[in-house]
């Protein structure tokens, strides 16, 4: 089906979201579908104004979309890679990027605070420019450029030429290994927030509009997501979803029993988020209404939260051994 306005896509979203919002995988397939519709519409709108796309390109998504871990509401993290490097194509794709990000916004994906969007020159580049940028990021290896690399690693092809992002990421992996940057990348994601206190209580928000709720994103999911991303770089795994990253880990890094445990626990976290999250808007979607969990569920949730830092320590040791 071809949509003529973003509003129509939004309406499609609003009428169908509840039917997919109980299953993590269906929900993320649905997000992909919505985003593709937006990109298609944006392409035709841009073509009306500026003519057809001047060369092959790839629109890719990062962040939770890249990892196929979006909640009911999600923000944008995306970029464009195009083939030919010249000023006209660049102008064209930035315009396209703007059209896409505006469209995504209308459909319900809030803008990225950090500007990680295809409308931003830094995230909309030709293949050769992308490779240069990655070399620069790695050469500079500042807190910010390493953060950018970490974001890029979750990049996943969504529309267009599917090899482009893979090639860019491969180049990034190569340089990261050559320059031994894994330890720096580990330090960049080191700040973990505790989710369970010494007395075995959930460390819920004490102030602000989400008081008494648990920030599941920062306190529960992040340790898993960050640790598995580093493992993926270390083992040169191309998959972006945390679950696939666990599955692809070689047996000599982690035995199958442990892989199963972590996989199951991460899936449970996603289940709890989708089931007990406060899904009234994007911001609140990161918060879990812990009072709605049963006793058994609370117990399980706490053990999962406690296990996140274990996985993280495991990765730390693995990386430090190699340095």
């Amino acid at each position: 089906m071809v949509y003529c306005t973003y509003k129509e896509i939004r309406m499609y979203r609003d009428t169908h979201i509840s039917s997919v919002s109980h299953d993590h995988f269906e929900l993320n397939r649905f997000h992909d579908e919505l985003m593709r519709h937006v990109v298609e519409l944006a392409i035709s709108r841009t073509a009306e104004k500026l003519g057809p796309t001047p060369c092959p390109f790839s629109f890719f998504v990062m962040g939770s979309a890249g990892r196929m871990e979006q909640a009911i509401w999600s923000d944008q993290d995306n970029g464009i890679i195009f083939q030919n490097k010249n000023i006209e194509t660049k102008t064209y794709f930035i315009q396209l990027g703007q059209e896409i990000t505006n469209g995504l916004f209308e459909v319900g994906y809030t803008y990225c605070d950090g500007g990680v969007m295809a409308s931003n020159d830094q995230w909309c580049k030709s293949l050769s420019e992308w490779e240069e940028q990655i070399s620069e990021w790695i050469e500079e290896s500042s807190w910010e450029t390493i953060r950018n690399l970490l974001i890029l690693i979750d990049g996943r092809h969504l529309y267009g030429e599917n090899q482009f992002i893979t090639n860019v990421k491969k180049a990034a992996y190569r340089s990261i290994h050559q320059e031994h940057l894994l330890a720096r990348m580990l330090d960049n994601t080191m700040l973990l927030k505790k989710g369970v206190g010494l007395l075995g209580q959930f460390l819920t928000e004490t102030h602000g509009p989400h008081s008494t709720l648990l920030n599941i994103k920062e306190r529960a999911l992040y340790p898993y997501v960050n640790a598995l991303r580093l493992l993926a770089v270390k083992e040169k795994i191309e998959e972006t979803s945390s679950l696939a990253r666990i599955q692809k880990l070689p047996a000599e890094v982690m035995n199958s029993h442990e892989r199963e445990v972590y996989e199951k626990q991460f899936l449970q976290l996603l289940y709890y988020r989708i089931t007990y999250g406060d899904h009234s808007n994007y911001e609140s979607g990161h918060y879990l209404v812990v009072s709605r969990l049963s006793r058994q569920e609370k117990k399980e949730m706490k053990s999962i939260i406690r296990n996140g830092p274990h996985l993280y320590q495991f990765v730390r040791k693995l990386i430090e051994r190699d340095v």
Binding site: T206, H207, G208, P209, T212
Partner: peptide, 9 residues
């Protein structure tokens, strides 16, 4: 304080 009675810092 917020409308729901929760406090801001």
């Amino acid at each position: 304080f917020n409308k729901d009675g929760s406090a801001n810092n």
